[in-house]
């Protein structure tokens, strides 16, 4: 499904700010895998996701989706395979456009825009049904600008937009981190529901160890730009937070010193 082979990325090479973000990273995802990704600050989690999405070019290695090498493709060319939800609720939607306009843009993900109408009447009914599924009352606000929505509503909408035409790969970059605990829980449950319904191959970064254990069939832990722990299936089911901390210490040679993760 997704293969990441020997991928490296260094930011600001040759300067005092040089930062080796990915260091010979390897990962193989099988179809239907739901992987949760954890790791300390600067471990390379977001860099991995952004490399897959093509936000910046990688220095070395290959990224392959369904047998096709996409390493050299531009961000917009990869969009037809990939649905994304970002940490910042502002980033996933166009605030000044209506809910239905945002959905219509997402419905055309990966297609070259033409001079056809941006939104067809026949689509509106589908959109209304999808929004009803979110259970947030958005189905009656389709012509509201997205900027009027709360952070949680915007993340739910972004999630819907990222998954509405079933991407080969869904990338979730701490998509509930900016939400209050109650809303975060709601969006997480919605995520699980959508991923299971469409059997989406999913890569989800989280800073919350409990969520990392609760969700997905596989868990990877990153440190210093590579994957240091990779557990799946039954082995993952049995894991506890102390187990995870011990695994991390063993793999990285140091205790996990990130409060943000521990508190989760």
């Amino acid at each position: 499904m997704l293969r990441i082979e020997h991928v490296s990325k260094t930011f600001f090479p040759g300067s005092v700010n040089e930062k080796r973000a990915l260091n010979d990273l390897n990962l193989q995802m099988n179809p239907g895998d739901f992987i949760t990704v954890i790791g300390g600050n600067g471990a390379g989690k977001s860099t991995m996701l952004n490399s897959i999405a093509g936000v910046f070019p990688i220095d070395a290695g290959k990224i392959i989706i369904d047998g096709e090498d996409i390493s050299k493709k531009a961000e917009h060319q990869r969009a037809k395979y990939i649905g994304r939800v970002f940490q910042d609720p502002m980033l996933g939607t166009a605030a000044g456009m209506m809910i239905e306009e945002n959905l219509a843009l997402a419905a055309r993900r990966g297609k070259t825009p033409t001079l056809a109408w941006a939104i067809k009447d026949s689509e509106r009914d589908d959109f209304r049904e999808m929004l009803r599924g979110l259970d947030l009352g958005l189905e009656s606000r389709m012509t509201n600008r997205v900027g009027l929505l709360s952070g949680g509503q915007r993340q739910a909408l972004t999630l819907l937009m990222a998954t509405m035409n079933q991407p080969k790969l869904l990338l979730l970059d701490e998509h509930t981190a900016a939400l209050d605990p109650k809303t975060a829980e709601k969006v997480l449950n919605l995520t699980l529901d959508i991923v299971q319904r469409h059997h989406l191959t999913t890569l989800m970064i989280t800073h919350n160890m409990r969520d990392a254990l609760r969700f997905g069939n596989r868990l990877v832990m990153m440190n210093a730009g590579r994957i240091v722990v990779d557990v799946e299936g039954e082995e993952k089911e049995k894991l506890t937070i102390p187990d995870l901390l011990a695994l991390f210490e063993k793999a990285s040679g140091s205790a996990l010193d990130n409060d943000r993760i521990l508190l989760g």
Partner: peptide, 14 residues
């Protein structure tokens, strides 16, 4: 229009 509001979002739509 989407480019003006949020270039990252519309790039993610291809």
């Amino acid at each position: 229009r989407a480019t003006g509001f949020n270039p990252q979002m519309i790039r993610a739509q291809g």
